[in-house]
Amino acid sequence: TVVATNAQGSPDLYLTFVQVTDLQYGHGRHYDMAIARAEDEGYRAPMIAFDHNDAATGALRHALAFMQGDTDEV
């Protein structure tokens, strides 16, 4: 997942799957590849990529629950 600015200038999430070797994954190349794909699709900086193992994934789930009113915990 890449958090980026879309063509309309709004914050957005770009979702993509990339295939990497274990070595590439260990060096964070999957982030670079995801950002490159987002750029190819017209997204622009600022950009940050994260995967299912990063803290941002849990925060995103919590943020969704919060915005949907399923929790009042911040």
Rank of each mutant, 00 (worst) to 15 (best):
A34W: 02
H62Q: 07
P11G: 15
L64M: 07
S10L: 13
A49C: 07
D22S: 09
H30I: 01
M67G: 14
V20E: 08
G26F: 15
M33P: 01
Y43W: 04
I48S: 15
D70R: 11
M47V: 07
L60W: 00
P46E: 14
V3D: 05
S10V: 12
D40Y: 03
H27K: 13
T71R: 03
L13H: 01
R61I: 03
L13Q: 04
A63M: 07
D72N: 10
V74Q: 12
V74R: 06
I35E: 05
Q8H: 14
V20G: 00
E41H: 12
I48K: 04
L15P: 08
E39P: 11
A65C: 11
G42V: 10
Y25T: 05
V3Y: 00
L15T: 12
V18S: 08
A36R: 08
F50L: 08
R29K: 12
P46H: 10
A59V: 13
A38Q: 03
G28D: 05
G69T: 02
P46V: 12
S10A: 13
G69V: 04
G42F: 12
T1I: 08
T71V: 14
D22A: 12
F17E: 14
G69S: 11
A36T: 11
E41G: 12
Y14K: 00
Y31D: 09
D40V: 06
T57H: 00
D72A: 15
T57M: 07
A49K: 03
D12E: 10
G26D: 13
L13R: 01
T16E: 02
L15K: 06
A55D: 14
G26C: 10
T71C: 15
R29G: 03
A59Y: 00
H52V: 11
D40R: 09
E39F: 13
A65L: 07
T71M: 08
N6D: 13
